[in-house]
């Protein structure tokens, strides 16, 4: 999977949770939960959706590594087969 494809997957899932937001407007190092007003329930749905589409299971202890777009992309690309 290319970096561009991965970014597309993450953006698609973010749009599902926060339909009125544009992930392109979010800085790569900004906390997405704060920037897009995602509560802990929706964040868990995001983690589940990403696990379905990428096969990567983000364990709870690693949640804070994926609070930013940059961190999320780095975390996923390092673990995708």
């Amino acid at each position: 999977m290319t970096e561009k494809e991965l970014k597309e997957i993450v953006f698609t899932e973010l749009k599902k949770i926060a339909p009125e937001c544009d992930p392109d407007d979010v800085d790569p190092d900004e906390n997405i939960r704060e920037a897009l007003d995602i509560d802990s329930y929706s964040f868990l749905q995001l983690i589940i959706a990403l696990s379905d589409s990428t096969g990567v299971d983000i364990v709870e202890a690693d949640y804070e590594k994926v609070f930013t777009l940059e961190g999320m992309l780095r975390y996923l690309s390092a673990r995708i087969d």
Binding site: S40, L44, I47, I48, D57, V59, E60
Partner: peptide, 11 residues
């Protein structure tokens, strides 16, 4: 939560 599949994690 470590023991649970991702869909059954508790908040």
């Amino acid at each position: 939560n470590l023991k649970r599949p991702i869909r059954e994690r508790l908040l």
